[in-house]
Amino acid sequence: MKWTGAHYTDKPTVEVRTWIDAPPERVWALVCDIGLMPGMSEELRSVEWLDGATGPAVGARFLGRSKHPAFGEWATTSYVIEYEPGRVFAWAVQDPAEPSAVWRFRLHTGGGGTELSQWMQMGPGRSGLSVAIDRMPEKEQKIVFVRMREFEHNMTVTLEHIKRLAEAR
C-alpha cells in the first residue's frame, strides 16, 4: 500500500497491489466487468453502463450508486479516461476535467501470473467529502486521512475478491 497527501487540495492518492496466480486474460476479464464491482464493495451498490455502452472504452460512461453510513446514498457518473486492453482501465468520477476522484486498475504480467494494482486519487473536484470539510475545516486532515484509509481497506477487499475469482477458475 502506498498513500500520499494530507489535504483535499493535495489530491491524495492510495494504491494497493496483489499478485494473482492466474493469466492476465482471466484477471482482465474480471477487472473490466463493472457488474461484479458492487459484490466486492462495502459502498458501491450498483453500476450500469450508459448510452448503450456494454463495456469499457475511452469516453464510455457508467452510473454508480453508493451508500455510506456517514454520507448517505448518492449516485455518480464516471467517464472512462484510459483504456488499454489487458493493461489499464481508468475512470474519472463526475467531471473528467475536474473529477471528484480518479480510479485506475493496472495489470503487469510475468512470472506465470499477474500483478494487479488499484489506484485512486481524491479530487480535485468537489465531492461529498468536500461538504464535511466545509463544515469542519479544522478537521480536514483527519477527515481526509479517515476517508483514504476507508478507500485503502475497500480496495484491498476488491483485489482479494478478484484474486480469489481469478485463481478459482
Score class of each variant (00 low, 15 high):
Val31Asn: 03
Asp33Cys: 12
Asp33Val: 11
Gly39Asn: 09
Ser41Asp: 12
Glu43Ser: 11
Glu43Val: 05
Glu43Trp: 09
Val47Lys: 02
Glu48Asn: 10
Trp49Phe: 11
Asp51Asn: 11
Thr54Tyr: 05
Ala57Phe: 10
Val58Thr: 14
Val58Trp: 03
Gly59Asp: 00
Gly59Cys: 02
Phe62Val: 02
Arg65Trp: 00
Pro69Trp: 10
Ala70Gly: 05
Ala70Glu: 14
Glu73Arg: 15
Tyr79Cys: 14
Tyr79Ala: 10
Tyr79Val: 12
Ile81Met: 07
Arg87His: 15
Val88His: 03
Val88Asp: 06
Phe89Glu: 04
Trp91Ser: 10
Gln94Lys: 12
Asp95Met: 04
Ala101Phe: 10
Val102Met: 11
Arg106Gln: 13
Arg106Lys: 09
Gly110Ala: 13
Gly111Leu: 09
Gly112His: 11
Gly113Arg: 06
Leu116Pro: 03
Trp119Asn: 03
Met120His: 05
Gln121Asn: 07
Met122Pro: 04
Met122Asn: 01
Gly123Ala: 12
Pro124Tyr: 07
Arg126Gly: 04
Val131Leu: 12
Val131Gly: 08
Ala132Phe: 12
Asp134Lys: 12
Arg135Gly: 04
Glu138Phe: 10
Glu138Val: 11
Lys139Val: 03
Lys139Glu: 14
Gln141Ala: 13
Lys142Arg: 15
Ile143Cys: 02
Glu150Gln: 14
Glu152Ile: 02
His153Phe: 11
Ile162Arg: 00
Leu165Asp: 03
